[in-house]
Structure formats: C-alpha cells, structure tokens
Write a protein that binds this DNA or RNA. Structure first.
Lengths: 274, 274
DNA sequence: CCCCCTAGAATGGTGTTACCAATCGCTGGG
DNA sequence: CCCAGCGATTGGTAACACCATTCTAGGGGG
C-alpha cells in the first residue's frame, strides 16, 4: 500500500557490514511479497530480520542468551540500535530482557505468532510446512464465518466486487493463467475477510495471501484449477451478493475442504518440533 | 515437571479489572495485572501504555502527528526512551515514523490487532463492546476446530485433564461459585486450544481468557451457569477423551452458540466506527 | 571437613545527555 | 511556476552514571 519502494530488504546502504553470519541465503524466494516490513530503510530492521529468523528457525534455541554487546559487535551497529531491535523482539515475545542476565530467547509459547513478521520468518525457515499447515487450519476455521458475515454486512460495492472477481477467476482459471489467477484468488479472499466487518478476520488477509502463494510455490496447485473450485467461488460470491449468509458459509466451507485436500501432502511429513 | 511453570503467562489472575473507559494517567502500574507480557518495571512501558491506549481509543485519531520531542517533554523521559517506545508502537502498526514529518498515527487497518497489548488497550477503551464482539466471533470460528483437533492429537494427560475440568465445572456451577467457575472455564478452553497442536489456535488462549472475564464483568453470565452448558462441557471433554473429533467439534459449536446468544446484548449497540 | 549464609564484586541492562548525519516538507526567491 | 535552500525532525553514534541481579569468596558454625 503505502510502500512504493519495492526494494524491500536489500536496502542496507552505507558501509555498515551487516552480514547475517551463518545461515547464508535469504531464500524466501524471489519476488515474494515484501515481508511485513515496517520501514525497509531503517538500520535496525535488518538486524531484526536476521535475529528474528534465527530464533523462529531454531538456530537460536530457547534459553539462549544474547547481550547487547554481542549484537553491537556482530552487526557493527551502535548500542542504541541494538537496544531498539531487542525491544521489538521483546514486544513480539521472542526474547526477554533482564538486568545482569542479558537477552534470553523465549519458548515458542510466548511468541506473538500472529505478528506478520513472525509468520514470515517461520515460513522462511525450517518450520515452513508446519507453519503452512497451521495457517491453513486457521483459514478453515475463520473463512467460512467471515464469508457468512460478509453476506450479512458487506457494502453494495463489495458485493458487486465479489461477483466480479469470481467471474474473473473463472476466466483466468479456464485460460490457465496461474499467476493472475493467484492474484485474483488472493483478492477474493481478502475482500471477503475485510467485508466481514470483523477486523480480527480482516487482519488475516495477509495470512491468506501468504498461504495461497506458498501453496502455489510448493506446486500444490493444479495446472488448471478444478472446475468445482470455480463453481464454489461463484456460489460464495452469489451468496454474498444475495445476502445469504448460510450459503456463503457452507460454500466457503466446501471450498476450503478442497484446499485442505490439496494441501494434504504437507500434513504427512509431520514436522512437529519439540 | 511440565506442570510447574505452566501457568507461565502471568495470567490474569482472578482480580483482573478490565477498567472501563477511564484511561487515567499512567498510574496504571500498581496493582494492575500485566495485560500482556512485558516488564512493568521498565520505563518505556508506561509511556507505551498511555500512547497505545490513546491511539486505540481514538483519542489520537488517524493522521495525528507526534514528535519525539513532544513525547520526551510530556512524559519527562529521555529521547532514547521515547524512541524505543515509538519503535514498539511502529512494530505494532499503530504509528509510522518518518523523517522531517514525525510520528504519524496509522489507520486501524494496519494495526496488529492480534497483539495482546492492542487487544487489551481496545478492551479498556471506548471500543470495548465492539472488540468483545469481534473476539467472540473469532472464538466461534476457531474453538470448534480446535476442539476437534484436540480430540485427534491431545496427549493422554490432556484428555484426562479435560474430563477432570469438566467435572470441576459442574461442581462449581451447581455450587454457584462464579469466581472459581470462571477460572476453571478459562482453564478448560485454554487446555483445548493448546492441545489442538496448532500454535495459532493455542495463541488465542489469552483472548479467550479475556473474553470470558469480560463477559463475567459485564454481567452477561447467569448467576447459575445453564445446566445445558455444563452438559456440553462434559460432552466435549468426553469426545476429546474418547478421540471423537466430530463430536468434540459439534459439541463446542453448540457451546459457543450459547455464548453467542448470551452476548447478544452487546451486538445491538452496533459500535461500528468509521 | 563441610555446609550455609552473607557481603561485596562483577556484569550487563536502563536511562541520560550531547552531537552529528540524513532526509524531506515548506517557503521564498527567481 | 519551478527550484533551491533552510530548517525541523528522525536516524545513528558515543560516552557516561546508575542499579538490579547474579556470582563468588570468605567466614562462621555444625
């Protein structure tokens, strides 16, 4: 939205070194949606990303202790920047800072797993499949109700738009234009979540976007979307447009049942970590 | 072993206050059960709380511009503390900091509404009913699936504990001990969310705790819990213990239907804000 | 000889101040 | 109407005093 400059992270200008030590590559695939990113241009954000990925990716295990001095030295930044970084990590529940002790990595139970950055980091790391699974289950829980709510409280413009996107999806799906299909699919689900009138649902739009993209990148998307899926998108859109919450809800539920089925391969290699 | 520290999140002990509106000064420190989880002892946290409440409570409207100098002066803190506070607010999406322009309050759409502190602030402010409603809808979406997942993947100890808490609930409910009933109710839902094996669900335990407490404080709780609710808790517990996901799911759905019904008074005064 | 308790030292975050660099909105001059 | 430059405001660095917490060493008692 307000982020015009796409360069996202690689911004690190200046002579500061900032190399992320081990864990070499930033793999999260090219051309991906810029991580949540607050400001790309600020110095602390790169330090934040590196440490955040290390913690969420288990490179820094629970209980590990950092100090401001280590951070300062490792990244070649001032103590102030190290402190700001640490404060943000603390506010995400990833670490806890205590006098004389240092900065301790917290157990996963205290992480703010809904923070967009945390989600992003976990998707970039070894826990990716598990995270994708968790997020999909969350979608399955929330989206049907969100669709129902949208059917109740969407504005006229939103209802029209839903029908319009559903039609676009059919066209793109039948044409086999997967890239644009993905974009429209994201737009569809985002629209419904936000039209639900519940900001807790609306805030999950980014999650859905990331999951859909992840699904495509993992090749869990058929080359031609299932006709049934296209039908269901249209059914949901019609139900929303026509103000039929029950239909919208059940339609979305069926749609997600297919999604669940498609992602089942991820379920197996149970990457549950201690 | 696993039991000892488990309460971990310094919970919301029974005397949580959910202060209505008031939003006094930063006096917030004493006797106030830590809403989220930072250190109360640190200086920036009181500044954070004050400004956070003001933004989420619409006292500082979208587009309003602050400066570090104002913050420094108003709270009598150093620039460093003001900066740290601002960084945290920025990481929550409440503000955005830009050179030469200052610190701008962001629209609600960019808030991290799942951040425990944001939830807490919104519950303390004028949007309280709307927030309680949103959170309840979220519960309705998530808890049935979480119960189903718990029936699939809970540990033996967790299954036993579910049955045990359900029995406790009946006893406390019939005795009319509302305080302890509330505590046990929170424990029950927390257990299921965490036993679901999905950390996105598990992270909502605090949300449920806050909603249940809010419900009680608003007097939306009958003096004697409905027998039907007690039956349903037991039914869900049995289904989880017996590994019957469908039963657990539908049981929880019925349970939440009652919750929805009970909270309906809140639905009416549609506090939808622009 | 061993254990426990206390006092003091070492450590590392907390908060403050001062200073310079970079950016970018705004104003005033051409 | 455009453009340059001023200046406000954040971004980043450095050095300092402070103090809570932990660790350790020493002493006293069993």
């Amino acid at each position: 939205m307000t982020e015009t400059g796409e360069g996202s992270r690689p911004g690190y200008s200046s002579e500061v070194e900032l190399r992320g030590v081990g864990h070499g590559k930033r793999e999260h695939t090219a051309a991906s949606p810029p991580p949540p990113a607050t400001d790309a241009a600020v110095l602390h954000s790169s330090v934040l990303d590196t440490i955040g990925e290390e913690i969420t990716g288990d490179a820094l295990p629970e209980g590990h202790v950092l100090t401001l001095e280590q951070i300062r030295e490792r990244f070649g930044v001032s103590r102030t920047v190290a402190r700001e970084t640490m404060r943000i990590l603390e506010s995400m529940g990833l670490v806890r800072s205590r006098r004389r002790v240092g900065i301790t990595v917290q157990p996963r139970a205290s992480w703010n797993v809904y923070d967009p950055r945390v989600i992003w980091w976990r998707l970039s790391g070894p826990g990716r499949n598990a995270q994708l699974r968790s997020l999909t289950e969350l979608r399955i829980a929330v989206e049907p109700l969100a669709a129902g709510a949208a059917a109740r409280s969407a504005s006229a413009a939103e209802r029209d738009r839903a029908v319009e996107i559903a039609a676009t999806l059919r066209a793109l799906g039948e044409a086999g234009d997967l890239d644009r299909f993905l974009a429209a699919d994201v737009a569809f689900h985002t629209l419904l979540l936000q039209a639900s009138g519940n900001e807790m649902f609306g805030a999950l739009a980014d999650v859905v976007a990331v999951v859909l993209q992840g699904r495509t990148q993992l090749g869990l998307m058929p080359h031609h979307p299932e006709p049934a899926a296209l039908d269901l998108h249209e059914a949901v859109a019609d139900a929303v447009a026509g103000g039929r919450p029950r239909d919208a809800e059940t339609g979305m539920r069926e749609l997600l049942a297919e999604v669940r089925h498609a992602m089942l391969p991820l379920w197996e290699p149970g990457t549950r970590k201690g």
